[in-house]
Amino acid sequence: MSQKSNFVFILKYLSKISLILVVLVSCKNSSKEINDFLADKNLPVGVSENVNLVRKDSGITVSRVITPLYWDYTNKKLNPYYEFPEGVKIVTINRLSRDSVTVTGDYAISYQTTAISEIIGHVVVVNHENGVTLNTEQMYWDQKEDYYFTEKPFTIYTEKDTMNGVGFESESNLNNWILNNTKGDFIVDQKEE
């Protein structure tokens, strides 16, 4: 190739690049237009990796959310949500002790409007204060009512008992259970009158 043909090739290449740059620079979209575009394409408005979110009340840490990947879909008009596609660990901290309750699962989604979260896959809830552990494959967490529930099979381990069933409800500290279709070995304390 001669020097003249090289020069013509470079000029054509540079003119294409400058045309693309002019088009990109001339685009002026508002953040609302960008959010609407992302929502229409079902894309998150934000993505974060290796998240360790701390929530405080009056300067005191009350919970932590730890996840390797976090997608923010709060740009959805009807039902904005947060998604944790690679799992989540939620730690609730009691002011008197360290970790009161820990929840882990393989996947989670939390709806902003209803404050209901769904945790799926190898869900484990541990109350560190009373030694109760719940295992299930799917669980819902009503954050407004501070309440867990599932219609899936579950296993609860306490210091003395192991219980299995299908369908479970309790306060988020694993107290005051409602168990459905339960079986297992139970130790019952009977008081004589």
Rank of each mutant, 00 (worst) to 15 (best):
L134A: 07
S110Q: 10
D185R: 13
G121H: 08
E129R: 15
N175I: 15
V132A: 06
T74M: 07
Y148W: 08
G131R: 12
T133L: 08
R98G: 15
T162F: 06
T104I: 13
V188Q: 14
F149K: 08
P85Q: 10
K183M: 09
E151Q: 13
S97D: 14
S63C: 11
T104R: 07
K152G: 11
D161I: 04
Q138S: 14
K160D: 14
E137V: 02
L78P: 00
N79D: 12
T114M: 07
E83Q: 11
N173L: 06
L69Q: 10
T158P: 10
P68L: 03
T92N: 13
T155E: 13
T150N: 06
I116N: 15
K183Y: 15
S100G: 04
N180Q: 15
G87K: 08
E137K: 11
P68S: 10
Q138F: 06
T162G: 01
Y140D: 15
F149W: 11
N180P: 06
N94R: 09
N176T: 10
G105Y: 01
I120D: 05
I90S: 01
E137G: 14
E159T: 13
Q112G: 03
E151F: 04
I93L: 15
P153E: 12
N127R: 05
F154D: 03
N79V: 08
E118R: 12
A115T: 09
S63Q: 14
R98T: 14
N164P: 10
E159D: 12
T150A: 08
T155C: 05
N130F: 05
V88N: 02
K77C: 04
E83F: 01
F168T: 10
W177I: 07
S110E: 11
V166P: 03
G105F: 00
N75Y: 00
G184Y: 02
W141I: 00
V88M: 09
P153I: 00
I156K: 09
T92W: 07
F84W: 06
T61F: 03
L69E: 13
N175Q: 14
Y147K: 10
G184Q: 04
P153F: 02
K76A: 12
V188C: 11
V88L: 12
I93G: 05
L69R: 13
T114A: 06
L174H: 02
I119S: 02
I119C: 03
T114Y: 00
A115C: 04
T114D: 07
E118L: 05
V125T: 01
E129Y: 08
V62Y: 03
T158R: 15
F84Q: 06
E159C: 00
T102M: 00
R95D: 12
V65M: 12
I119E: 03
N173T: 08
T102H: 01
M139D: 02
K144D: 11
Y107G: 04
G165V: 00
N164V: 09
F186Y: 13
M139C: 08
R98Y: 01
T136V: 03
Y73C: 09
Y111G: 07
T158W: 00
Y107W: 15
P153T: 07
T158G: 12
W71S: 11
Y147S: 02
M163F: 00
T74L: 07
T150D: 04
